Simulated scan of single mutants.
Amino acid sequence: MLFKRPQHLRFEYIPRYYKPEKDEELKRKERLRRSLKIQRIGISERKKRSLLWWLIIVGIVFYLYLVLSGTL
């Protein structure tokens, strides 16, 4: 290359008022929030799958009814 490429600026920021207890509490709350979100997603996914299975079963039963009644 013919030109010097710019480098990233680097900062070493040290907070003035750091409370480790508060930091741990925030991390704990974040972990709890994530776990609750995962549990909610899991429940909704199960509901979707359950509904899908019921629709498939009803479709098969309806198809068998039509075949056995001689309509198809």
Score class of each variant (00 low, 15 high):
Arg5Ser: 02
Lys19Trp: 03
Leu32Met: 08
Asp23Asn: 12
Ile60Thr: 03
Ile43Asn: 02
Ser35Asp: 12
Val67Tyr: 13
Gln39Lys: 06
Arg33Lys: 12
Glu30His: 05
Leu36Gly: 00
Pro15Val: 02
Ile43Leu: 06
Tyr13Thr: 12
Ser35Arg: 09
Glu45Leu: 09
Pro15Phe: 08
Arg40Thr: 06
Gln7Pro: 07
Glu45Phe: 04
Glu21Asp: 09
Lys47Tyr: 04
Glu12His: 13
Tyr63Ser: 11
Ile57Pro: 03
Leu36Ala: 01
Ile38Met: 10
Phe11Thr: 14
Val58Thr: 09
Arg31Glu: 14
Lys22Trp: 07
Arg40Gln: 14
Phe62Glu: 04
Leu68Cys: 06
Leu26Asn: 09
Arg46Ile: 01
Arg5Gly: 01
Glu12Thr: 15
Tyr63Ala: 11
Ile43Ser: 02
Glu12Ala: 11
Tyr63Lys: 06
Trp54Thr: 04
Leu52Glu: 14
Asp23Ala: 15
Ile14Ala: 15
Phe3Gln: 10
Lys19Cys: 12
Trp53Val: 07
Leu26His: 05
Leu55Arg: 15
Gly59Phe: 11
Ile41Asn: 05
Lys27Gly: 01
Lys37Asn: 10
Leu32Gln: 13
Pro6Asp: 00
Lys37Tyr: 05
Arg28Gly: 00
Val61Glu: 04
Lys22Gly: 03
Pro6Thr: 09
Phe62Pro: 00
Arg10Thr: 15
Glu45Trp: 06
His8Thr: 02
Ile41Trp: 03
Ser44Val: 07
Thr71Asp: 00
Glu30Ile: 04
Ile56Trp: 11
Trp54Gly: 00
Thr71Gln: 04
Ile60Gln: 02
Arg5Trp: 00
Glu30Ala: 14
Tyr17Lys: 13
Lys4Trp: 08
Leu72Thr: 09
Lys22Asn: 12
Arg5Asp: 01
Glu30Phe: 12
Leu51Ala: 07
Arg10Met: 09
Arg46Ser: 06
Leu36Cys: 01
Arg16Trp: 00
Leu9Gln: 11
Trp53Arg: 14
Gln39Glu: 12
Glu45Pro: 00
Glu24Thr: 08
Tyr65His: 09
Lys22Ile: 12
Phe11Val: 15
